[in-house]
């Protein structure tokens, strides 16, 4: 814009605001390295006086490695499934003519506005009756199909030229091969956006696993941390902060690597 505001002044205000926003994270990471005695001190200390990994060691005395791998398996399968299923359907909606196409599109999009709690109980009843309660598939199956993913992929494929399809047909490539060999390899940017969003959603998913999982073999990280923070260890702040750090840090690192694609993707997929 025109007469630029003094960028130094803007930066000072923004830096102050940034500090305010990330203080809880700093507090969490620094706190996870403190001893219980130091955590309870008044007034609180800022930097740990004797940094220790003791809290993390106590965390991994419990099956936290198992919870971590449960979270990772569920998030990876949910993400891969979403990318594949919704890109297939999204492509068909964008470029192919087939029976009931309009109806299916309206039905799926109509479900975007339905609150999660509406389907929550019937889904629970269904999972129990399928004999899937307290299994990892129960944490995965309901999340493989999400209306938002289809919408995003459809928008993306609409933006790719239809000439690719025509050219493929002229070259005698089969209809399905056209999708897998021509369009799918071009979907990288959309996959980056959708992949991050889905992975985050699954990694942080809390309520459903809390209800469906009932043994340590299927607990995910958020469930395990929630149970500790309301159980007999709820005043063991070091342990809790270490658990919180373990949930947040990997996600933050992954996000730092992919944030460029993510933000471009949001701009490019029509959410504007």
């Amino acid at each position: 814009m025109l007469e630029r505001r003094n960028p130094i002044l803007t930066n000072i205000v923004l830096l102050g605001f940034l500090l305010l926003v990330i203080t809880p994270f700093l507090w969490m990471v620094l706190g996870s390295l403190k001893t219980q005695g130091e955590l309870l001190r008044v007034p609180p200390t800022w930097l740990p006086e004797e940094p220790t990994l003791g809290n993390f060691r106590r965390l991994f005395d419990r099956p936290f490695a198992k919870f971590f791998s449960n979270s990772a398996i569920v998030a990876i399968v949910v993400t891969a499934g979403n990318l594949l299923l919704s890109s297939m359907f999204g492509y068909a909606l964008a470029h192919l003519r087939f029976p009931f196409k309009k109806l299916l599109f309206v039905l799926v999009l109509g479900c975007l506005m339905i609150p999660g709690l509406v389907t929550f109980i019937p889904q629970y009843v269904l999972v129990v009756n399928l004999g899937l309660a307290d299994t990892l598939p129960a944490l995965i199956l309901p999340f493989l199909v999400q209306p938002f993913s289809v919408f995003l992929m459809r928008q993306f494929f609409l933006g790719l030229p239809r000439e690719l399809l025509e050219a493929g047909r002229i070259d005698g490539v089969g209809e399905i091969a056209i999708f897998f060999r021509i369009y799918l390899p071009l979907a990288g940017p959309a996959f980056a956006t959708l992949g991050i969003l889905t992975f985050l959603g699954s990694w942080n998913n809390f309520l459903w696993p809390l209800v469906v999982s009932s043994s340590e073999s299927t607990y995910t990280l958020p469930v395990a941390l929630a149970l500790i923070s309301t159980g007999q260890n709820q005043t063991d702040y070091g342990l809790l902060l270490a658990g919180a750090t373990l949930i947040v840090l990997p996600i933050l690192v992954v996000f730092l690597f992919f944030q460029r694609y993510f933000i471009q993707g949001i701009a490019a997929t029509g959410i504007k």
Binding site: V21, I22, P24, F25, W27, M28, L200, W203, N204, F206, L221, P222, L225, A226, S229, L240, L241, G243, A244, T245, I247, V248, I251, L252, F255
Partner: peptide, 13 residues
């Protein structure tokens, strides 16, 4: 960054 953070971790902190 707060958007991508687990609510359970947020609650603890």
């Amino acid at each position: 960054s707060p958007v991508i953070t687990s609510i359970v971790a947020v609650a603890v902190v």
